[in-house]
Amino acid sequence: MIYTVSDLIKKYGSRTVLDIPYLEVEKEQIYALLGANGAGKTTLLNILGLLEAPTAGRIQYCSRPVNYAESALQSLRKEVVLVDQHPILFTTTVFKNLEFGLKIRKINKKERYRIIDESLDLVGMREFSSAPAQHLSGGETQRVAIARALALSPKVFLCDEPTSSVDVENQNIIITILRRVNEIKKISVLFTTHDRSQAARLAHHTIVLNHGRLVPTMYENIFRGVLQTDPFGQPQCTIQDKIHLSLSGDQIKDKRKAVSVFIDPEMIRSVKLPGDQATQNELRGRVVQMIEENGNVRVVVDAGIWVALLISKKRYQEIRFMVGETIDLYIPPEAVHII
């Protein structure tokens, strides 16, 4: 393992932004860190990047406990490099930006020049070597920042939203770079993203954060809801005042009124409702997207809320609905989880 995180808590004032009981990150793998804004992705990245200390908990890096005292972090930081969501380049040339970290590592001049050329080649920015870094576009800046980090041959490369502020062309270039450095240089990569499909395409593993906690989902089918009691005294969760979902008995203990719920896409069933109206745990909506995913079909239905369900190809061939068609769904109480 490159990281083993136990009982990690990070607080800003009295607000807990991260609460992770246990997390392992394997060596030489690509991890996508998914979550909405404010989920704690950047904070976790900063902690793993040894730039911020946790409020409580233990972190092991390469099986060694991390001591967050400034003097102890110095050597570890030479193995872990983080590129910000909006990276900043020093106000000098692209070349000198890349040279900074190499000089710190006391790499000789000839070797420095070779590494810089190689790194700029990797991101397709070699012809910009002598250009003033401040004159580069957003996408170019991002690529140079990645080259600057990779020139240092880190063991771990952390990237905060690497493609969020660049155009599609640069997005593809950056994704290719991340994949190549992992495959060729065997660098462990952790990147944050909002984009579930990008995570699925690039990452070997996905970590999903919701309000600072790990959740066992693919960052979909998560809704804010209110816990209520139905007319028969049974617990239910109401989403957007219009969708009422019964809960399985073991979830009634939660004392919160406003909760986040996750609906397991594999447990949602496509059915034919007898009446015109959807009732408790039933939804009627229009198919807006269908994608093949690992031998299954992921169907996204707009039922007032966008709900994704995952069905087998065999089942799909039986039902055969089309995009734009209206379908009915049944969400069993066991599929609804409070997170």
């Binding site: 990047g49 730039l51 110095q74 930081r77 030479k78 872990v80 490099v81 983080l82 910000d84 990276p87 900043i88 020093f90 900074f100 970290g101 710190i104 590592r105 600057r148 980090a149 240092l152």
Partner: peptide, 8 residues
Amino acid sequence: KTAMTLGA
């Protein structure tokens, strides 16, 4: 932050 993450 950048200088620190680059090992400074």
